[in-house]
């Protein structure tokens, strides 16, 4: 593992058992995440995009061990953490933090802002000057220190997200897993939070795993992007190249589906028909075959693996070379 890599995920699998009957026997698995591999480098933002149900949030939760992983390995700063006990995890906990999607459920309504931000400080660094640090982190996240003794319900969504960020920062993390941090916010507030996250990254040298469904936001903040479909990565690429020249048919369709905020560029065609199959009965072979216009018998039997299509570009499609017009 190279020095610059702070987080590495190898063939991660998260399966949820499907139980049936009185005895609750396991009759099968929902493969929420099925063999995902990527690495996160120091100081970069890796965007993970995909539609709902594609397993991007589950991937994030498995990395911070909120979901147990079924197979595969997770390395944090060169150390495998997949099977560490909670006690062994403790020193690594502060290294990896998470920002949540819903600013309303991510803060304990019975705690003041000061208590919320102080909790990780008291826990991880009991010797620290807690009140001074709390104020410091609040200012970092762009919150006025008069808010110290207020309760979360007094704040708007954007401010709550700032509190969530301050709480994550209070652990002094190096990696932040941001699970749809702006998708619940108003448009005019989104850009504030995105800019804040970018500033913090520059100042503190943070690495972000940025999980989102909004391709425009991901494009703006990420250095590299992984596109997920039904539990697997279909394309991983440096952001600029991916948005200029997507190779996988799903990525192409996904980008073409995004409405452009300019009525002069209006398009009438629908790039992708059909719906995502349920992960409970994912098709064999390539998972995108049910909606792919280029699918052949080979796609129906053999699952494509991620292969290099350029220096920073990997794609999982049998025919990526052939379908470029």
């Amino acid at each position: 593992m190279p020095e610059s890599c702070v987080l590495k995920v190898e063939d991660l699998q998260v399966y949820f058992p499907v139980k049936k009957g009185v005895l609750k026997r396991t009759v099968g698995h929902v493969k929420a995440v099925d063999g995902v591999s990527f690495e996160l480098r120091r100081g970069e933002t890796f965007g993970l995009v995909g539609e709902s149900g594609c397993g991007k949030t589950t991937t994030g939760k498995a990395i911070v061990r909120l979901e147990p992983s079924f197979g595969g390995k997770i390395f944090c700063q060169g150390r495998e953490i997949t099977h560490l006990s909670p006690l062994e995890m403790l020193p690594l906990r502060s290294c990896m933090q998470m920002i949540f999607q819903d600013p309303y459920s991510s803060l304990n309504p019975r705690m003041t802002i000061a208590d919320i931000i102080a909790e990780p400080i008291r826990f991880h660094r009991p010797e620290a000057d807690v009140s001074a640090e709390v104020v410091e982190y609040m200012e970092m996240a762009g919150l006025r220190k008069e808010y110290l003794l207020r309760y979360p319900h007094e704040f708007s969504g954007g401010q709550r997200q700032r509190i969530g960020i301050a709480r994550a920062l209070a652990c002094k993390p190096q990696i932040i897993i941001a699970d749809e941090p702006v998708s619940a916010l108003d448009v005019s507030i989104q850009s504030q939070i995105i800019n804040l996250m970018k500033t913090l990254q520059r100042e503190l040298g943070l690495s972000y795993l940025f999980i989102a469904h909004d391709l425009s936001v991901v494009k703006h903040i990420s250095d590299r992007v992984g596109v997920m479909y039904l539990g697997s990565l279909v394309e991983v690429c440096e952001t600029g190249e991916l948005y200029r020249k997507p190779l996988h048919p799903y990525t192409k369709a996904l980008f073409a589906s995004v409405p452009i905020p300019d009525p002069r560029k209006r398009s009438e065609k629908v790039p992708l028909q059909g719906e995502i199959p349920s992960p409970l009965n994912a098709p064999p072979g390539c998972k995108f075959q049910t909606r792919c216009p280029h699918a052949t018998d080979r796609c129906r039997s053999e699952a494509p693996k991620l292969e290099c299509a350029g220096e920073e570009h990997q794609v999982a499609c049998h025919y990526w070379r052939d379908i470029q017009e």
Binding site: L90, R93, F123
Partner: peptide
Amino acid sequence: KADYVNAARVMGIPNRQ
């Protein structure tokens, strides 16, 4: 299942707390 409990777990806060 609330996210603030998830956040506490990610911070490594023990179950009792």
